[in-house]
């Protein structure tokens, strides 16, 4: 059977790994290629690089990071942050990314999803959604969570699927960096509205949070950053816990 994927995410700023607390106070946690190699050896199921400052700054550093990672890690790699055009998608895929996630640019121009999916296939198009509870519903935010929109998270996710997205990466802005767990209501309502896989993100502080993303949030994969980077838990502890509570995961390779 298909296994739940555990995906460490490396937030990358100018070629260095950082992790934001609610997208602000950044703490340096090292070299992304080195970390990718560690996660590869540790049995992570995929890796995600999020270039967090890409909207404002030079993008060539992330392309170099991806190229170096692809030389050493033979595992699926998703890269996002500041991707604006079909050409940006192509550059990252050629460098060695398997999937490219787009966020703000897709909201400004949903045709970008169609264009990129037609060119490279839906399997490599991830639409990243930053959502936050506003009154009684969930709205999406752009520009790394800085700009509010009036668009419903569920409607936008369905729209992205219809446009050719192969997967949705859903981050709760309310929970990101808080270690309080995923926003399960958000995760479940979006996941249940889709026929493509959803990666839950934002708020993981314990191993139980990871499992809940699947059992209660109905996610196909769970993404976390801080709990892995700062050594709170490792991938095999996460997998052992998931297995124990009945979430099927891929065993660590023995070859």
């Amino acid at each position: 059977m298909l296994k739940t994927r555990i995906i460490p995410c490396l937030d990358v700023n100018n070629g260095r790994v950082v992790k934001g607390i609610n997208f602000i106070d950044l703490v340096d946690a090292g070299d992304p290629v080195e970390q990718a190699v560690i996660y590869d050896a540790a049995g992570a199921d995929e890796l995600c690089f999020l270039d967090i400052t890409a909207s404002h700054e030079n993008r060539s550093t992330i392309v170099e990071v991806v190229a170096k990672t692809a030389e050493k890690c033979f595992m699926p790699l998703t890269v996002g942050g500041g991707v604006r055009t079909v050409e940006d998608v192509r550059t990252l895929l050629i460098a060695g990314a398997d999937k490219v996630s787009i966020n703000t640019a897709a909201i400004k121009n949903p045709q970008l999803i169609n264009d990129a999916a037609n060119k490279f296939g839906s399997q490599c198009m991830v639409v990243a959604i930053d959502a936050k509870r506003v009154n009684k519903s969930y709205k999406i935010f752009t520009h790394g969570g800085r700009k509010e929109t009036d668009i419903s998270a569920i409607e936008w996710a369905k729209n992205a699927e219809a446009s050719g997205a192969g997967e949705i990466l859903l981050t709760s802005m309310d929970r990101d960096g808080t270690k309080m767990g995923f926003d399960l209501e958000l995760t479940r309502s979006v996941s249940d509205a889709l026929s493509i896989p959803l990666i839950a993100s934002g708020g993981v502080g314990t191993l139980d949070h990871l499992a809940e993303g699947v059992t209660k949030g109905h996610a196909s994969a769970v993404l976390a950053a801080s709990i892995f980077h700062f050594g709170l838990y490792n991938i095999s502890e996460a997998k052992a816990y998931m297995e124990k509570v009945g979430v099927a995961v891929r065993p660590i390779e023995i070859i």
Binding site: M1, L2, K3, T4, R5, D45, E46, S122, Q123, G166, E167, L194, S195, I196, P197, L198, S220, A221, R250, P251, E253, I255
Partner: peptide, 28 residues
């Protein structure tokens, strides 16, 4: 969900084929 995306285990039917040598039932 479609795409079928992620790690899944194989059921090897032709276990004698050199391509699957040393890759036992259940490899992901």
């Amino acid at each position: 969900k479609v795409p079928h995306m992620g790690w899944n285990d194989l059921q090897i039917i032709d276990t004698t084929h050199p391509f699957v040598q040393d890759l036992l039932e259940g490899v992901h």
